[in-house]
Design a protein around this nucleic acid. Structure first.
Lengths: 237, 237
DNA sequence: GGGAGCTTGTGATATGTTTCACGTGGCTAG
DNA sequence: CTAGCCACGTGAAACATATCACAAGCTCCC
């Protein structure tokens, strides 16, 4: 009670919370007991005010004049993000990328685990990767419903992604992380995030090109800035 | 001449341009010759006004009353993003993820190509994946300088990422795409983008948790909205 | 017990991005 | 040639997000 959770938190604030979480976890392992917003911001490439504001969307977790207790803040952020609920995840598409996802140890470390994998290729079905048996696509619905899986990773070729997505949603999946380079359509009660390598690379390409050419040759205006501008660009200190 | 390139384009506008690019490329293959901002927006999960504004940052590419010629717009967007310059890329870290990146055919299709790969593990050095020979780390500097590589992908374990990054920058790399779950420090003349699976998954986890619990139990306010809110969430139409 | 010094939490402010709404130019048909 | 419609391009308004700057609360020390 009390607190000041105000309105809704911006999407970017949530993403930053993930960074704070990770950093706090590392600090805890190092035995650090307390930290200031200033220090946490330098470790995460943010600013002190930003850190405090991000946390303020959810409550008041520090002590004035002192800072934040690492353990306690970690626990709060963990709860906010819903980590530790141990959400089981399903993977569809066990190609190069899908296999890499199965092997990715960042997920289990954060409390997420791929517990089911599916593929339409009969040559892959039956394979066991990291204790997970690859099942055929026709078992998607039953398996996901039975195991109450709400999150799924889509690592199939672009042309198959929309159909797979619809199958998953029909089976009850609420959250999708899409790796295919397509724009997926999902109903409004389903949450979608995408990892799109082409977009990232092209963004870098744009920045590089912009920095090489005056800033344009689409139009010959006076270039107003030699902007660093980068979304996640962090200057070394 | 003429045009209205105004100020600088927002980061998100550039990312959307990538989506327009991809969609336009598909349309061209289908033989579609012209398209309206309205149509393009539905295909990319954007809005008509947004599409027009995004393009307006760089010029005026359509015809009033008509729409955009697919071929011409495609060429313009391609030039804006710097695709087709055929930027060669280097990859550091040929583990599960690195191998998947080498095999990812979205890069060559967009005009980007991984031409060099490095790894610190002697057991991986010498391997040939997709015509690329894995070289040892001590050849990073010479190779990158010689081949004039400006973009690199960092797919090494978190603990090694900062050191690898510094090596790459010293060798002359200007753009980095980081896959390690850490906050990298880079000088301000270097561009950095990150693909962070934990952040994406945790963001979904947050949304899921928020939708399940009233919207919080961090603080018992009246929940002001049952917000869909998703960054890249697109309602089916 | 009181004052100095520190760091949080937060109104207010500044900045940035998206959306609206309409003027402009362009096409088609009669 | 003119009327009518269409879709772009864009100033201005609305909205969202980040930053500033300071009051409130805590600790320590004298």
């Amino acid at each position: 009670m009390s607190g000041t959770p105000r309105g809704k938190a911006p999407q970017m604030a949530i993403r930053r919370l993930s960074m704070y979480y990770r950093t706090l976890a590392a600090l805890q392992e190092q035995g650090v007991e307390s930290i200031s917003s200033e220090h946490l911001s330098t470790l995460t490439g943010s600013t002190a005010a930003q850190v405090r504001r991000d946390l303020a969307y959810f409550g008041s977790f520090g002590r004035r004049g002192v800072g934040y207790e690492v353990q306690s803040l970690l626990a709060h952020v963990q709860q906010i993000l819903g980590i530790g609920e141990g959400w089981p995840m399903a993977l569809v598409g066990v190609g190069n990328l899908g296999s890499a996802l199965l092997a990715y140890d960042g997920f289990p470390r954060q409390g997420f685990r791929i517990v089911e994998a599916f593929d339409s290729d009969p040559r892959r079905v039956g394979a066991v990767i990291r204790d997970v048996i690859v099942k055929p696509m026709d078992q998607v619905k039953d398996t996901i419903q039975e195991r109450q899986i709400f999150m799924a990773l889509v690592a199939v070729p672009a042309r198959a992604a929309q159909a797979v997505t619809e199958q998953l949603i029909e089976a009850g999946v609420r959250c999708l992380l899409n790796f295919a380079p397509v724009t997926l359509r999902v109903p409004s009660h389903v949450y979608l995030a995408s990892v799109d390598l082409s977009i990232e690379v092209e963004y870098l390409s744009y920045l590089l090109r912009e920095s090489v050419t005056g800033s344009a040759d689409f139009a010959n205006d006076a270039a107003p800035n030699g902007s660093p501008s980068g979304v996640q660009t962090v200057a070394s200190g």
